[in-house]
C-alpha cells in the first residue's frame, strides 16, 4: 500500500505538471481562436472594418478591388506588427495610400485592431 502510494504521488505530480501548461496552452489557443473569430466579425462588419469594401477575402461576399486581395498575409507581412501598423495608419508609410487609417482616425479601437490583425494574419 505504502509502496504503491509513494509511487503514485510523483506520478500524480507529473500529471499535474503536464496538465498545467497544457491547460494554459488550450486556454491561450481558445483565446487566440476567439480573437480571430472576433477579428473576422469586425473585419466583415460594414460599420467597422468593412475590409470587403476594398479587399477580396476568401468567403466574403461582393468584395471591391481598390486594395489588393488579402491572401498570403504571413508571407507579405512576416512581422505581424508591421501589418498592424498598416491597418492602424497606412498613410504613415505612403502619404498617398488610399487605405482608411483605422486606428489613427479612431474607426476601430486598439483592441479591435489587435483582433483584426490576428484575423487578417491568418489569411
Amino acid at each position: 500500500m505504502t509502496k504503491k502510494s509513494t509511487r503514485l504521488v510523483p506520478m500524480a505530480g507529473m500529471v499535474i505538471l503536464l496538465a498545467g501548461p497544457l491547460q494554459v496552452a488550450t486556454v491561450a489557443a481558445a483565446e487566440g481562436a476567439s480573437a480571430v473569430a472576433e477579428g473576422k466579425a469586425i473585419s466583415f462588419k460594414r460599420s467597422k472594418g468593412n475590409c470587403l469594401a476594398c479587399h477580396m477575402i476568401e468567403g466574403g461576399e461582393s468584395p471591391g478591388n481598390v486594395g489588393p486581395p488579402l491572401i498570403a498575409m504571413k508571407a507579405r507581412y512576416p512581422d505581424k506588427a508591421k501589418l498592424r501598423a498598416q491597418i492602424f495608419d497606412a498613410t504613415a508609410f505612403n502619404p498617398d495610400s488610399a487605405m482608411v487609417p483605422f486606428g489613427k482616425h479612431r474607426i476601430l479601437t486598439e483592441d479591435e485592431i489587435d483582433k483584426v490583425t490576428e484575423y487578417i494574419w491568418t489569411l
Binding site: L52, A53, C54, S62, P63, G64, N65, V66, D96, A98
Partner: peptide, 11 residues
C-alpha cells in the same frame, strides 16, 4: 483619379 475604374464593393 487614383482608383477610377476599380470597385468599392460592386460600385
Amino acid at each position: 483619379v487614383q482608383n477610377t475604374g476599380l470597385k468599392v464593393r460592386t460600385e
